[in-house]
Design a protein around this nucleic acid. Structure first.
Lengths: 152, 152
DNA sequence: TTACCTGCAAACTGTTTGCCGCTGT
DNA sequence: ACAGCGGCAAACAGTTTGCAGGTAA
């Protein structure tokens, strides 16, 4: 058995196959984008991905990162979410899905299990036939620490 | 009793008072921004506000609109929400609050009563002490029409 | 060999900022 | 009178696009 540089839920080989199966190619840059996403574990920004890649591949261009993220998202391998700023966060599609709570006062990020958000999704589906993706945008509010300070 | 140009829940006079009470001023441009927000009823963008004002006051500058929206938000007279694009939506703070559902397939916008979202907010408050503002960001997903098409 | 993909440079959108003269209070 | 405010122009961040040469399959 061949040694693997990457030990992850989805082996690099099958990702390569999925990419090639659609007529797309597995380039060095595309692999590096995928590796950067795996190493980050949680959500990252395109800029973070670019600068991480730049360490071993300095000529990487931001536009290449963006184009790859878009291509990989089309293949269903990558998804993105929105926080409170203007920056898109990216992660592997098979990564552990969860909701995000963002404190508008201190910027703290909390993660909550999807099971907590699911009842609302079920209600929206039942009442409006709307299939909500509650992990797509962070929930904005005030965290417990900031709330207790401001209520004094 | 004096006739009012604006008939709205919050009379223009008291808005002017609230503005002046904090050392800020009620300028022509600021009044026009407020009027544009009232006329739009629902969420609008800064650019929409600017172009609406431009009809009767052509020299208005986008930066003036932004600065006014920011100032009025500080006073609690105006709030903003985020949809799926990169554009901020603005509305009067006393406007009817509601949640937004945005279809990522056809772009349709649905409004839902806050009462539907409230149970989740209550849960987040109870479990995490997090005071969620569920009207701040639209809920992204797939509307019933698009969902039924794509599931065939 | 032929799409697909890359790096580079330039454009683009929504928004912010510095400056300086004007104006509401 | 004087701090707040407006218009203008320029800067800004994040992202997208056109191009021409390079490379995976």
């Amino acid at each position: 058995m061949r040694a693997r540089a990457i030990t992850h839920a989805t082996p690099a080989e099958s990702i390569g196959e999925r990419v090639r199966a659609t007529g797309k190619r597995m380039t060095v840059q595309r692999r590096l984008v995928l590796e950067a996403l795996q190493q980050a574990k949680h959500h990252t920004t395109a800029e973070e991905i670019a600068s991480r890649i730049r360490r071993q591949y300095p000529q990487i261009d931001p536009s290449t990162v963006y184009r790859n993220l878009e291509a990989l998202e089309e293949l269903g391998l990558v998804t993105h979410t929105h926080f409170e700023d203007r920056v898109t966060r990216w992660h592997l599609a098979d990564a552990h899905r969860h909701g995000h709570l963002i404190c508008r006062s201190c910027g703290a990020e909390l993660e909550v299990p999807m099971s907590l958000l699911e009842p609302l999704a079920a209600k929206l589906r039942a009442k409006h036939g709307f299939v909500a993706d509650l992990a797509h945008s962070a929930v904005v509010g005030v965290c417990s620490a900031c709330a207790s300070v401001s209520s004094r």
